[in-house]
Nucleic acid binder design. Structure first.
Length: 379
DNA sequence: AATGCGGGGTC
DNA sequence: GACCCAGCATT
């Protein structure tokens, strides 16, 4: 499996030249490539972890407007920080970034440090991001090995190591380190990323137009589709919830801040409680269809406000499902018209008018719940 | 080494 | 629905 790189020095240099020539000609025009400012490189690389380029672009531009310098980031309010990240996912990324920004202000004169050891010491910066910042911003000859690069190199050298295993990164580190450009490491690394994103794609790679096809072992043996080798991951575990949409007499909704640890920490939600699959199925069956009920909600609310009738039944707004990497949520979204008055409010709860929702950070499942609510109110 | 942590896409 | 993409921190 993990043997030595057998290329001659001439072949290595020729490979680098061909790849770099392609990159200089074909590189994607992206906002964070306007300069090699370490702060911009850092922000873009953190955003690009697990996230596609098209998604990142608007977030990146707004982030640089809101937090133009490392010091602005270090001093930002957590709410604004989360708002800047709302919808991007993996929210610990932005919390870790602020932690690192504070470290830079305190011990690195407010700047990104310039040695790979210091860069890697910062919170949220691991081997990939450290290599990307080091090579792009400071021309350090460090590899930046992400999924794209492992895909390219697994094909280039027909490497069958399982890329899902942590130890495999070492194998690829060795191959990239021995074949990468020492004079243009930043462009070399970015060339590999662009190649992986546009040519050497997971399915149906465009081998005929590839600038390094003549070096590729997988192309030679027509086995590109067999790489990279990767073991399948577990299916997401299903979890079942009821979310309560509760309104008081002034029309404000009850929102709750999630716990400060764990999934979607410190973000806002309608109060939710977990139920068993059996209870979920039983509850879901006890409601009429969404279509039938949603039109009744508005009508019954107006009656309730006039206190003409006593509503005892909860109304189903709909079902929200959301798949995370490790779990799948099934949420019954229920409008509870009775419990909005004389409530004991918890510390983490707040009454919020719908017009004010934009000021609160809602992760995707909660955005879907808000969409259901809006839909029902339009009926 | 295994797990927790979001969100996007295609077929 | 089933499949694909995927770094870092923590334990």
């Amino acid at each position: 499996m993990s043997e030595e790189v057998t290329w001659t020095q001439e072949k290595i240099e020729s490979f680098q030249d061909d790849l770099l020539a392609w990159y200089h000609h074909e590189k994607r025009d992206l906002p964070w490539r306007e300069s090699t400012d370490p702060y911009r490189v850092w922000v873009s690389e953190i955003m690009l972890q697990q996230t596609q380029v098209v998604t990142v672009i608007p977030y990146f531009n707004r982030f640089m407007e809101w937090f133009p310098t490392i010091e602005d980031l270090a001093n930002a309010e957590e709410d604004k920080l989360l708002k800047a990240w709302e919808g991007l996912g993996y929210y610990s990324r932005v919390r870790n970034m602020q932690h690192a920004a504070k470290e830079m202000v305190e011990t690195f004169d407010g700047q990104m440090p310039q040695t790979i050891e210091d860069i890697l010491s910062l919170k949220g910066i691991g081997p990939y991001t450290g290599g990307a910042i080091g090579s792009i911003a400071f021309s350090l000859p460090e590899p930046a090995i992400d999924g794209n690069v492992m895909r390219v190199y697994s094909r280039l050298f027909c490497l069958s190591d399982d890329i899902a295993l942590p130890k495999t990164r070492k194998v690829f580190d060795k191959y990239v380190r021995e074949t990468m450009s020492q004079t243009e490491p930043g462009d070399f690394n970015q060339a590999l990323m662009d190649l992986g994103a546009t040519i050497c794609t997971p399915t149906k790679p465009s081998c005929e137009t590839c600038p390094i096809k003549n070096y590729c072992e997988a192309r030679k043996t027509d086995t590109a589709s067999s790489y990279p080798v990767k073991k399948k991951k577990e299916k997401a575990k299903p979890l079942y919830y009821v979310a309560d949409v509760i309104r008081n007499k002034t029309g404000a909704f009850l929102l709750e801040k999630r716990p400060e640890d764990g999934l979607l920490s410190n973000m806002w939600t309608f109060p939710m409680h977990e139920v068993t699959k059996e209870d979920y199925d039983r509850l879901a069956a006890s409601y009429d269809s969404v279509e039938e009920k949603s039109s009744q909600v508005a009508e019954q609310l107006s009656l309730y406000e006039e206190e003409k009738i006593d509503i005892k039944e909860k109304q189903l707004l709909g079902v929200v499902t959301h798949i995370f990497s490790h779990r799948k949520w099934h949420v019954l979204v229920v409008e509870d018209l009775l419990r909005g008055t004389d409530r004991e409010m918890l510390e983490k709860q707040k009454w919020v008018y719908q017009e004010e929702f934009g000021q609160y950070v809602f992760p995707k499942p909660q955005q879907k719940m808000v969409d259901l609510l809006k839909k029902s109110m339009n009926n």
